[in-house]
Amino acid sequence: MNKIIVLLSMVLLTACSTNTETSPEKEPSRVEDDQTMTETALFFQSEEKGIMIEEANNFSFVAEKSNTVSFQKEDLKAIISVLTPTNDLTNVKQALKDGSGNITVIEETDGYLAFQSNHAEPIRTEVYLTVTGSHTYVTTFMMKAPEYEQYFSDIEHFRDALTFY
């Protein structure tokens, strides 16, 4: 009789132990944590385009097209364009100016272009050019001109989180 009680107790203890190890409450939590970590660590990635954005910084993904990916945070728009590699950035900047119509250039250096549209509601455009071995990247930020100062830090944060590979 004692043997039976001991045996039943051991079976019960073993069952409880197994149940604890495979607790269905714990498992999803770990998966959620993993997902959260992945999302936090990598907001956007496109192997084809060679773009990786580590943190969202409150930006949201808008659309991915054949050679552009666009994001938005409130009234700040971000467009990443992937072009074939070229060292002639002057032509790229000129094409952007031509395509933007009636504008006033605010500042222009080798890898940077800032201009403002001459519309009744002027839009400010900030263009950063990056050349890698495989591509030329054009990162464009657009906002209402009076809101440029307001979004300056957001542009910096987005650029810091952005990697071309």
């Binding site: 097209k65 054949s66 050679n67 552009t68 666009s70 728009k77 467009i79 364009s81 072009l83 074939t84 790229v92 094409a95 952007l96 395509g99 933007s100 549209s117 519309h119 839009i123 455009t125 054009v138 464009t140 657009m142």
Partner: peptide, 14 residues
């Protein structure tokens, strides 16, 4: 042009 899509995106943003 390779930049045509970009310019159209910029128009849309504007």
């Amino acid at each position: 042009s390779e930049l045509y899509e970009t310019v159209r995106e910029m128009e849309e943003a504007t």
